[in-house]
């Protein structure tokens, strides 16, 4: 099932000014539900712009963004013809039906940012409240949830991000960098979005912090079955944590599919200046030297497994 579909999307910054810049051109992407999709590409390849399109922060210059098949930027006028035929509007008077459609479209537009939760790059800069609890409850409050509901959701979101509940009454400005980032991510998770989009969630963190963040994101996805999109330029992280991948370069899509499919196109990745994971490269070199290991190895764990099998088979021939 496709959760999000982008159809021939163009995006131009600063139309009609001397600073006009085409950030996306003819981008068509399908993002599957209940999976982790990695969006990978160099700086300036249009990754962040694409993410801003998903939750309605930006509108495409041309093309469509579909969430569960619904064009998120459709205006009521464009929908009248189609929707008036629907059973729920058919029995109404035409003017009442149109009014109902307008209200529905407005509601969907408003709810879009709650359905598609976007964690921007360096999200720790968005923290503003006196306490961690208040900051995380900002999103749920904007959704109009009740106090009780918020009291359930905030600690839950904090747990998902691997933080202790003792932090709830602390000021977010007293936390460490990694903790701040997780609080900011919790602020989005507390809205329980169907799609969670994270733009470079591990940028600027130490290796341990990176691993923890990605691990928590994976646990979150597996337990909630939501759709997760991670933007990154690190092939290693993507190979390790993503199910699917989309490769962006020069404002367009160069490849998409499962990790195996994308990584098998080595020559293409070389062409856009992206590397396959180092461990995959190592395995390829080993193969070239005549050592019998599989080619489609993308993580260190898989490599260890493959090498173990290889040595066992060697032992087998010895005896």
């Amino acid at each position: 099932m496709d959760k999000i579909v982008l159809e021939h999307v163009d995006f131009v910054y600063g139309t009609g000014t001397p600073f006009e810049h085409k950030a996306l051109s003819d981008v068509s992407v399908r993002i599957a539900a209940d999976r982790i999709t990695g969006v990978i590409g160099h700086t300036g390849s249009g990754k962040s712009t694409m993410m801003a399109l998903l939750n309605g922060l930006e509108k495409p210059t041309a093309g469509k963004v579909l969430l569960d098949g619904y064009d998120v930027n459709a205006t009521a006028k464009e929908l009248y013809a189609d929707w008036l035929k629907r059973p729920e509007y058919q029995n109404m008077r035409k003017s009442t039906a149109k009014k109902a459609i307008r209200a529905e479209v407005e509601k969907r537009r408003r709810n879009l940012c709650f359905r598609v939760g976007l964690v921007m790059q360096y999200p720790e800069y968005q923290l503003f409240e006196e306490t961690v609890f208040k900051d995380i409850s900002y999103g749920p409050k904007n959704m109009g949830l009740s106090e009780e509901e918020i009291r359930i959701r905030v600690p839950e979101a904090l747990r998902f991000c691997g933080l202790d509940e003792s932090l709830l009454e602390k000021s977010p400005f007293d936390l460490s960098g990694g903790q701040k980032r997780r609080v900011a991510i919790a602020g989005v998770i507390a809205m329980r979005p169907e799609v969670l989009v994270l733009d470079e969630p591990a940028a600027g963190l130490d290796p341990l912090g990176r691993e923890q963040i990605f691990e928590k994101i994976r646990q979150y996805q597996r337990s909630t079955h939501s759709t997760v999109i991670i933007v990154s330029h690190s092939m290693e992280d993507m190979a390790e944590y993503c199910d699917d991948m989309v490769v962006l370069a020069h404002s367009g899509i160069v490849a998409q599919g499962s990790c195996e499919e994308v990584f098998s196109q080595v020559s293409m990745l070389d062409g856009v200046g992206l590397d396959i994971p180092q461990i995959t490269q190592l395995m390829r070199i080993l193969r070239a030297r005549g050592i019998d290991v599989p080619e489609n190895v993308y993580t260190v764990e898989q490599a260890a497994e493959a090498l173990k099998r290889h040595f066992q088979s060697l032992k087998g021939t010895d005896t």
């Binding site: 801003a52 922060l57 976007l118 921007m120 900002y138 809205m191």
Partner: peptide, 15 residues
Amino acid sequence: ETQRIMNAQKARGAD
């Protein structure tokens, strides 16, 4: 920076 923070808060439903 203002635009970025506004977008971040809009993503959390700010109006």
